[in-house]
């Protein structure tokens, strides 16, 4: 009886580790590897994991005749990139496998990792606007564009956090953020001489490009997880379309009311 309870605890621990990683934006291969490693280190001989960006399926069995097979399906809904969590869970799984840490201690460490906060919002906003401003100059803007993009980037990032908080669909999210960026950029370009709205909009657009989705989809394909690779590829493509659509709608409307000549 005690042994069965222990097996269940191991199962919950392994799924928990996988869930944290997947939510933080890890590749499939790493999630499956982590879960397998944790289970194997506890003396479970038969473990099979099937992970996808939207869920983790895991089955385990000690392999003796009197043992039961345990299965756990974990649905994953939201996700936001947090590389520190991936790094820490990765380290934890190695530590768990090599030292004789108990399952309870492991659970405590995972709780700690999951509770971790991101950097404070003001810091992230400043960073986002700095990134947008740098990109506007990399795309050929001047010092004036840098200053304006810095301000617009801050507004857009704050708006994007608000939309994330309101759990808006990712397509609408990208569309609204880019539309806002384009709108402010057009007003700024119309009222201040020597600015280029194209560079400003493109700089802000870089904040929302699906870099993580592209990278992860490639890494999934590389390790043979075709379904996840295709899913993330589609996500990347749709996000790019939503960004272009958002900026495009505003540009078109602006041209219709005679603000710019398209």
């Amino acid at each position: 009886m005690e042994e069965k309870r222990q097996q269940k605890r191991i199962l919950v621990l392994a799924v928990r580790a996988g869930e944290i990683m997947m939510k933080a934006g890890a590749e499939i291969y790493r999630v499956e590897d982590t879960i397998t490693r944790i289970c194997k280190s506890c003396g479970i001989n038969y473990v099979d994991v099937f992970a996808m960006p939207t869920g983790i399926f895991i089955t385990m069995d000690k392999g003796f005749e009197e043992d039961d097979t345990y299965t756990y399906i974990c649905r994953i809904k939201s996700s936001s990139t947090d590389l520190n969590k991936i790094s820490r869970v990765n380290e934890f799984s190695r530590q768990f496998a090599t030292t004789d840490m108990t399952v309870e201690e492991g659970m405590k460490i995972l709780d700690e990792i999951e509770q971790e906060k991101t950097y404070p919002l003001p810091v992230r906003i400043v960073c986002a606007s700095l990134a947008a401003a740098c990109f506007s100059v990399l795309f050929g803007g001047n010092a004036m564009d840098f200053a304006i993009t810095f301000l617009i980037g801050a507004v857009c990032y704050a708006f994007s956090r608000f939309l994330t908080h309101a759990e808006v669909n990712f397509f609408i999210h990208g569309l609204c953020c880019c539309a806002l960026a384009a709108f402010i950029a057009l007003i700024a370009a119309a009222s201040i001489d020597g600015t280029h709205y194209a560079m400003i909009i493109a700089g802000c657009l870089m904040l929302f490009v699906p870099g993580v989705a592209i990278t992860n989809s490639i890494r999934d394909f590389l390790s043979g997880d075709m379904v996840s690779g295709l899913g993330r590829m589609a996500e990347a493509f749709l996000t790019a379309v939503s960004l272009a659509a958002g900026a495009g709608i505003v540009l078109k409307l602006w041209a219709l009311i005679g603000g710019i000549v398209l």
Binding site: T118, Y119, C127
Partner: peptide, 14 residues
Amino acid sequence: LFATLSFSVIFRVP
């Protein structure tokens, strides 16, 4: 350099 630095902070690289 600065653009990557900013994204590192947003994605919370250790």
